[in-house]
Nucleic acid binder design. Sequence first.
DNA 1: GGCGAGATCCTTACGTTGTAAATATATGGT
DNA 2: ACCATATATTTACAACGTAAGGATCTCGCC
Lengths: 208, 208
Amino acid sequence: MVVAGRQPLSRRRVLEEAVRFTDREGLEALTMRRLGSELGVKAMSLYNHVPNKSALLDGMVEVLLGELEVPPETHDWEERIKEGYRAFRRLAHEHPNVFPLLVNRPPDTMDGAWLVEELLQTLRRAGFERETALHAFRALSSYAFGYAMAEIRGFTLEPNGSRLGARSLSPAEFPNLCELAPYLEEVDHDREFEFGLELIIAGMRDRS
Amino acid sequence: MVVAGRQPLSRRRVLEEAVRFTDREGLEALTMRRLGSELGVKAMSLYNHVPNKSALLDGMVEVLLGELEVPPETHDWEERIKEGYRAFRRLAHEHPNVFPLLVNRPPDTMDGAWLVEELLQTLRRAGFERETALHAFRALSSYAFGYAMAEIRGFTLEPNGSRLGARSLSPAEFPNLCELAPYLEEVDHDREFEFGLELIIAGMRDRS
DNA sequence: GGCGAGATCCTTACGTTGTAAATATATGGT
DNA sequence: ACCATATATTTACAACGTAAGGATCTCGCC
C-alpha cells in the first residue's frame, strides 16, 4: 500500500532540483551526494537520469534558458531589442548562482536560439545589413552578458576588495577613482544597464 | 657544495609558474601536486608561499593584471579609451586559461586600479560629468569583458554546440540565424571588437 | 494471479583532490 | 658551533566523481 509514493525521479526533476538547490546554496555546494539526498536518493541513482556531472550542469543551463522570455513583436525595433536583453539579464537576477555556468557552457538548446533569431530578425527589419546586424548583435550580447556577470560577481576591473577598497586608495594617486568611490556601491543597476543599452543603440542609430 | 642550487621558491615564482602551467595545460589541470612537481617540489611545500589554493588563484589574477599595459596619454580621448580596452582584451589572448579567473575574483591589485583611474580621467577630461563617466566606463568594461570571454569560451547566446550547430537548425524556423551561419565562425574578431567599441563611443559622442 | 524484463536504486570501492599535523632538513645570524 | 627560523617532506583524512555489481521495484503479458 502506498502512502504518498515518491513520485519517480526523472531527468527534469533532477535538473530542476539542481537549479533550485544551487540558487539556494551556491554552485560549489552542489555535489552529487548532496543533490541526491535532496531528492531522497543516493548519489549513484542520479546517474540513471544524467550521464555525469558535466551533463548535469549542461542540463541546468538548459533549464535556465528555458525560462527566457522572448519578447513579442513591436513596431519599435529599439524597444524590442532592449526588451530582449532585459529578459536575458533577468535570468541572472533570478538565478545568480546558475547564470555563470553560461561562461563554460554555451548552450545547446533551442531556447537560446529563439531569442537570437528574434533579435537578428528585428535588426534586419530595422534596415541593418547582414554583417552589421551580426556585429551589433554581438556587441549588445557581450555588453549584456558582461554587465550581468558584473552584477553577480563584481566588476572585473574595479578594485572592490577589502584590502583595496576604493577608500584605501590614496586620493593623490587615484583622484578620479576616489571621487567616485561613494557612488560605486550604490549605483542603481537597472538605470545603469539601461544607460549602456541606450548608448550602444544610439551608436547604431547613426548607422541605419 | 652546490651544483646548480635550485633557486629558492618564492611567492612570485610559484604564481608565475602557475600562470605558465595553466596557459599550457588548462585550469582544471592545475592541482597543487602537479604545480609542485612542476617546480621540483611536493605539493605541501607550496603552502609556505601561498596560504591555500584560492589564494593561489587570486595571485594568478594579480600576475595577469600586472601585465596590463596602461596606454600613454594622447590628445584624442577616444583613441586612448580604445587603447585601454585593447590592452585589456590582449590579456585574454595571452592567457586564455587564466583570464576567466576574473569572473570569480575581482582583483585586489593596484594594477587594475591604474587602468581604471586613467580611463576615468580620460573621460572626465573629455567633458563627461562624474556619473556619466562612471556609467560609460562600466558600459565599456562590460562590453570588453563580455567580448573577450566570448572569444575564449564561446558566445553565450549563440547555439554553437555539436547537436545544435547552426547548420542543423531548420532554415524555415530560423532564417536569420541560418543565413548568418557561415559567417559565425569566420568573423575577424579584431574587427568585430573594434566595431563594438566604436559603436559605444559613437553613442557617447552624442552626449558630450 | 503470476512471471519475466527493464528501469531504477543501493552498496561498495577506487583514484584524486585540498590541506591539517607532525617531522625533517637547510639557512643565516650570533 | 649553535640555535631560531624558514622551508621541504611524510603521512593522513575527508570529500569528491563515478565504475561495477547486486538488489528492488514496476509494468505488460500470459
